[in-house]
């Protein structure tokens, strides 16, 4: 509904609200331009080579971001690989299988999991989870496959694998809550007609509901990847912070966010600061791309289900 009112009687209240709206709208562009301007020195010094350079060396003032970009993409990819199946099955449990007295407390629990701050995951991951992973998972695997390139190096428990698992735990609530909402949007008629044909719960879930909600579910996965890409504190605690590209899942690595967290407040040279901000700009682009994609997918589901009701 559009409410007509004359243009003459603009109150200060209305003007203030319009100004706030413009301010809020422009924040995202301000972020982009500020990062762009501050990263000019690094762009001038390294150009495109910044993105494919293998060496990140503050001592000699040479910066290449490939190790961090690699670390960011690998950890996020592994995290979604773990969290996606777990998340979607949990959502199926909440909407299709569980009795209502169980689904409420479990969804509240999952919600609380998302309220736990990143730094607490970091503490827990570093002091509790990493030693367990090292003892129960990495050492047994290393004993079984001593020469596997995926498990090369000392089993310290910190590194890509542990960071990815923690990330997976952190993005799980996001996947569960969006998938759950999307599954609840599907009209009950769809389920009932399938059950009437004698389908089992598994068949209804995978052959009927999953294809029906596919776009939204994939959208939720992208949203979760977007969250994982920029996750900072937990990863900084656990990843080990070494700028190298490795095939080993248990060796320390670094991500864009962890590099920023570790180095920016101590950066001395102008070029170092600028390179770090350039790194931030890369992260900004990565997450904006992924998030826009996910918004598009989730929107189109909500629109469709709206017209079908």
């Amino acid at each position: 509904m559009k409410i007509p009112f004359s243009k003459k009687e603009r109150t200060p209240f209305e003007v203030l609200s319009f100004i706030s709206a413009i301010a809020v709208f422009s924040i995202i562009f301000l972020i982009f331009f500020a990062l762009l301007i501050e990263s000019f020195p690094a762009m001038k010094a390294f150009g495109f080579k910044f993105l494919i350079g293998l060496k990140w060396d503050p001592v000699r003032d040479i910066y290449g971001a490939l190790p961090q970009i690699f670390g960011t993409l690998t950890t996020s990819f592994l995290a979604i690989l773990i969290a996606f199946p777990v998340g979607i099955l949990t959502a199926f449990f909440l909407t299709e299988i569980s009795p209502s007295y169980l689904s409420r407390p479990i969804s509240i629990g999952v919600e609380l999991l998302s309220a736990v701050p990143s730094i607490i995951y970091g503490m827990w991951g570093l002091f509790v989870f990493a030693p367990i992973i090292s003892r129960r998972l990495i050492i047994p695997i290393k004993n079984k496959f001593p020469n596997s390139p995926l498990f090369e190096g000392p089993p310290m428990g910190i590194g890509i694998l542990t960071a990815s698992i923690i990330l997976a735990i952190m993005i799980l609530p996001l996947i569960v809550s969006i998938c759950r909402e999307i599954l609840l949007l599907i009209p009950d008629k769809v389920r009932e007609s399938a059950y009437a044909m004698g389908a089992t719960k598994a068949e209804v879930s995978f052959k009927i509901l999953f294809p029906y909600a596919k776009k939204g579910i994939i959208g939720s996965a992208f949203l979760a990847i977007g969250r994982a890409l920029g996750e900072t504190m937990a990863v900084t605690f656990i990843i080990g912070n070494q700028h190298n590209i490795t095939t080993s899942l248990i060796s320390p690595s670094s991500t864009i966010a962890s590099t920023l967290a570790n180095e920016l407040s101590e950066a001395v040279t102008k070029l170092h600061t600028s390179s770090l901000i350039f790194l931030g700009l890369v992260l900004f682009f990565l997450s904006i791309t992924v998030i826009s994609l996910s918004r598009y997918l989730i929107y189109s589901v909500e629109k469709n289900s709206g017209s079908r009701k």
Partner: peptide, 14 residues
């Protein structure tokens, strides 16, 4: 909506 998903560290950087 985009702003709400921008990593918080990027906002700190800004």
């Amino acid at each position: 909506e985009i702003l709400s998903s921008v990593p918080s560290i990027v906002i700190g950087l800004f």
